[in-house]
Design a protein around this nucleic acid. Structure first.
Length: 591
RNA sequence: GGGGUGGUAGUUCAAUUUGGUUAGAGCACCGGCCUGUCACGCCGGACGUUGCGAGUUCGAGUCUCGUCCAUCCCGCCA
């Protein structure tokens, strides 16, 4: 056994003539005949080691057989490289080690892809050999970043007197919200635990218990469909506090975000983040998680439609719809084909019926639907919307929901297509005053927008029975660069108000008792006013890592069909296991 | 549940207008040469159920249908 005296990233000029030992993997090998260079890699870096046939023929013979990803330990003398052989691209590039002792710990089969280049294999393949992909520079860096973010989180919250408390992973299933992952009970056959979608109820109970500042970095599970930024299991920074108001949570959430960004990236975010009401965010950006790294805000367009002959939009307005516009700068290269493609895209994915447009040419508006607008209205538009030469105005008229959502999506799409986003910028913000409930057309009822324990704005309580759609909640999200990083709310802590909320959501007393009885009961014994929030930890790390894929910051992620390609889970189980659980698998007929 | 893209050697990619010799190349691998390379170089070699299953055809990597997997998006994600 050779024990390392140094790691592969630390040797410098000052170590010249030291006798050192290194252990690691063979990252690269250059065989010059009587001289072999090997780049030895560990998680700290790479160091070049040299085998010389003249000085150590026996070791050289062994070295001749070494291949990529073999694990070796070496002892040798640190040399200054000849001037012309210094490699300025390597941190250890001024030195190398002439090997006097070699131990081959383990030979590697030919690696299924090039560890030095993460793009050398398709993702499917890399996920199968995830432990090898984790050897790549990029993933090593991401895992270290994740560690640092976790440490910073604990440091910050610990300094603020928060206590980390673990909550159960096996808990009660409640069919609200996302679909639960279920775990069958062996002892109580036919019954199931659920994996937590979040520790929501537990953290509220901890407030009742008097742990007035709680946090946890905790796994959560949601059995829905997955995306580039969504995994079936993910990690939250879960926070709850007592005797506080919305602004106190926003202060802590801002502080934590700033602390993590500064600790991990040395980036200083503003002391306070801009705050938008839900209403403002939707009207300006067509999104409840706006990316404000670029402008292109949405403009009201109804007043111009009214002065035009464009009947399609006029009738939209007559039936209570909306017409809004977004201006895309420097769009002279937007051919008819590009516009058509955008139109198809927005119809397909965002439910708009069409995409109207006008181009700014020679100080007036041209093309598209411009012929329906009188010249003086065109000038007005150019003036009001601050339209420059060669800009293109995209206009959508439809129901409010479709207009805001599709223009919001178009705004992002255009910014991406046109590279209008400053990728070095950080745009954190809060969105507040979310609606308490939203109408569920399928189920013909009001659903909680956040969750059923979210408190309404106190002055809106009176609207709960008469005008639910306009009840604002004490719910808030923190958004960075268009990603919802976290969210939370002030919770209801009074039995009466909670009953009112359940009434609005159509949850009967018996149903409430069955599902949340333990929480309702707890509230009988002195529940402090409380509230909190949760950060999507993986998303936070993803942003810090500059990635747009959550898989990049999770050591062993699942695919978008929730499979682990490495260990092939989920998998079938023995009949014996099923028998013990009192389960039987129904044959799925695939005819 | 719906739509887009992709699946060819260990791997990354090629393979002409619906099709036409023995399915090619880089890296990796094996062998040989090479003492300052760092994308080492040079010479040679081995490597294929074209994801899977049907169909059309004299003939399918290529066309059709089904299916599986990956990925991106819509729905979904309190």
């Amino acid at each position: 056994m050779i024990k390392r005296t140094h790691n592969c990233g630390e040797l410098r000029q000052k170590n010249i003539n030291n006798n050192v030992s290194l252990c690691g993997w063979i990252a690269k090998r250059r065989d010059l005949g009587g001289l072999i260079f090997i780049d030895l890699r560990d998680r700290y870096g790479k160091t070049q080691v040299v085998f010389n046939e003249d000085t150590h023929p026996d070791i050289f013979k062994t070295a001749k057989k070494l291949g990529l990803e073999d694990v070796i330990g070496i002892t040798g003398l640190v040399n200054a490289r000849p001037k012309e052989a210094v490699n300025p691209k390597m941190l250890t590039g001024e030195v190398d080690i002439s090997v006097t002792e070699l131990v081959v710990f383990n030979e590697s089969d030919t690696p299924p892809f090039d560890i030095g280049n993460r793009n050398s294999a398709m993702e499917e393949h890399r996920l199968t050999y995830r432990y090898l992909e984790l050897r790549t520079d990029e993933l090593q860096r991401n895992m270290i970043l994740r560690h640092k973010a976790g440490q910073a989180t604990r440091e910050f919250l610990n300094k603020q007197d928060f206590i980390e408390i673990e909550t159960p992973i096996l808990m009660k299933s409640t069919p609200e919200g996302a679909r639960d992952f279920l775990v069958p009970s062996r002892i109580h056959k036919g019954r199931f635990y659920a994996l937590p979608q979040s520790p929501q109820t537990y953290k509220q109970l901890l407030m009742v218990a008097g742990f007035d500042k709680y946090f946890q970095i905790v796994k959560c599970f949601r059995d829905e469909d997955f995306r580039a930024d969504r995994q079936p299991e993910f990690t939250q920074i879960d926070i709850e506090m007592s005797f506080i108001e919305q602004n106190d949570i926003i202060k802590i959430g801002t502080g934590l975000t700033r602390y993590v960004f500064e600790s991990v990236l040395d980036v200083k975010l503003p002391e306070t983040f801009p705050s938008f009401t839900y209403q403002e965010a939707m009207e300006k950006y067509g999104s409840d998680k706006p990316d404000t790294r670029f402008g292109m805000e949405l403009h009201e367009f109804a007043q111009y439609v009214e002065q035009s002959d464009f009947n399609a939009f006029k009738s939209v307005l007559e039936i209570g719809g909306r017409v809004k516009a977004v201006v895309c700068p420097n769009a002279d290269h937007f051919s008819r084909k590009v516009i058509d493609e955008l139109t198809v895209w927005i119809k397909t994915y965002h439910g708009a019926k069409g995409l109207a447009w006008m181009k700014s040419v020679n100080g007036s508006l041209d093309g598209g639907i411009s012929k329906f607008f009188p010249d003086e209205v065109k000038s007005q538009i150019i003036n009001d919307l601050d339209v420059s030469e060669n800009d293109i105005i995209f206009i959508i008229g439809d129901t409010q929901k479709v207009v805001l959502n599709s223009l919001g999506a178009l705004r992002l799409e255009l910014a991406n297509l046109e590279n209008l986003i400053d990728t070095n910028a950080w745009a954190p913000l809060w969105v507040v005053d979310f609606p308490l409930v939203e109408w569920n057309d399928d189920k013909n009822r009001w659903d909680a927008m956040h969750h059923p324990f979210t408190s309404p704005h106190l002055e809106d309580i009176k609207l709960m029975e008469t005008d639910p759609a306009n009840v604002r909640s004490l719910g808030y999200d923190v958004v960075v660069n268009g990603y919802e990083l976290g969210g939370g709310s002030i919770r209801i802590h009074s039995k009466d108000l909670q009953k009112k909320a359940f009434d609005l959501l159509g949850v009967s007393e018996s149903e409430a008792q069955e599902k949340f009885g333990f929480l309702m009961d707890a509230f009988k014994y002195g529940a402090p006013p409380h509230g909190g929030m949760a950060f999507g930890f993986d998303r936070l790390v993803m942003l810090l890592a500059g990635s747009s894929q959550i898989r990049d910051v999770i050591a062993f992620p699942k695919t978008t069909s929730a499979m682990s390609l490495m260990d092939n889970s989920p998998s079938f189980v023995d009949d014996q296991q099923l028998y013990e659980l009192g389960l039987e698998i129904k044959k799925i007929d695939k005819s």
